[in-house]
Structure formats: structure tokens, C-alpha cells
Amino acid sequence: MIRLEKIGKTYYEADGGVATLALEDVTLRIHKGEFVAVMGPSGSGKSTLLHLLDFLDRPTHGKYFFNDRDTSTLTDVELARLRNKEMGFVFQAFNLLGRSTVAENVELPLLYSDVPVFKRQELVQRAVRAVGLDEKIHVPTANLSGGQKQRVAIARALVNDPSIIFADEPTGNLDSRSGGQVMEILQDLNEQGRTIILVTHETYTANYAQRRIVLGDGKMTIDEPIDNRNRGNGLIK
């Protein structure tokens, strides 16, 4: 599904001076249905790798193939369409529209897709049901708890039926119990066949994944399977 070949990212100052090498020669493959945790300390390149993978940024060198297609040839509009159809996003800070209802938030990705208006309602209801928030569907998200907000964000990520979900520190703003519930949902989605790429610095959250990639100083230092016997340790389910 995802193939990176010696991919890297260098940031330049606006005046063209001082270059910062944020990511260096990362080569990896992520297969459909995998649950991968990307770990590493602050400044290790986790966020840079995530933004290259989700097309919010472009690499300065190397090749990125998505479903065997070289993404360097795609336009910004084509990448936006791919993000909309193939990818779902869950953020640490939820990024919900506080005054809008659960339904309005979940519907957001559909506004940029070619799903006809009459079908949107049904898709929104299905996604909200999947995260167990049916009863809150018309409630403004500002009135929800942190855990509920993250579930809304997951419903929003699901509504377009994406093949891959990027979760950037999804439990970072949650208590242990809510964090556990969110991870359970992500795990269920993975079991349904979706690819999950989780960025986290918490080992117990990473333990939900099947594979761990560790970055350090912009380089991939570890790429190994995770022993799932530790799954969920540290979280209250």
C-alpha cells in the first residue's frame, strides 16, 4: 500500500539559508491492514514522516509510492482528493468545530467528496453509530467530554470509508479510561481491514499496534513487530 524509498525532508530558512535535515533516507513498506506505531522522542522526525505519508507535505528527496503510484507526479488537487477518499485523520487536539453538532462535524469530509447530499445523512449516522455516539448526534461537540470528542473525530475519519487512518497522538489529551476506549475503536477498525498508522510516544498505546517503527534524529532506528501480549497495559479498559 505504502512504499517509501530513501525518502527525506530538509527544511530551509525562508532566505534559503540554514538547512535542517528533519528526515533522512527512510525506506519502508506498509501493507494493507497493518497497524503500525511510529515512535520516537521529540524532534526525531515522527511528525515529518506522518505529514509526508498523509500528503500534507512533500519530500525533498526519495520516492513515495501510494498503491504503487508515484506520488511525486500528483498535483496538490489530486493529493487532496486522495486524502479525502483514502485517508482518515485523528488528531491529539481533536480539531472539531466546537459550535457544530456531532453530525455536522462528521459530515465535514463528505463536503469535499462526490457523495450525493441525500446519501450523506446515512453515512454520517453509520459512522456515529460505529463509535457509539448515536444519542449525541445533534449535540454541539463543545458539550462533549474529551473521550467523546475523540470518538467524534474517529467517526469523522471513518465517514468516507478510508483505507488508511492516521492517528497523531490520539490519546494525548485523554484520561487513561477514555484513551483505552479510543484505542479499542482503532483496534476494531484495524481488524475490519483498515490500515492504521499511529504516531505516539507512549509505549502502552503503541502496544495496540502490530509493528513499531522508531525514529531518532530523522533516521529510522527500529522497525520491528510488537509482542501483542502487552496490549493495553497501562490503560484502563
Binding site: 498523509d54 500534507l56 496538490d76 482528493r81 485523520f89 469535499y112 467528496s113
Partner: peptide, 16 residues
């Protein structure tokens, strides 16, 4: 600003 970032992340183009 964050809303704009979110919309772009979930598939909105500059034109949108």
C-alpha cells in the same frame, strides 16, 4: 486557522 488546517487535511483544496 485550525479549522482551515483541518479542512485542508481532510481533502479541501485551495479552491474549496
Amino acid at each position: 486557522t485550525r479549522e482551515i488546517g483541518l479542512r485542508k487535511a481532510i481533502g479541501a483544496t485551495e479552491g474549496d
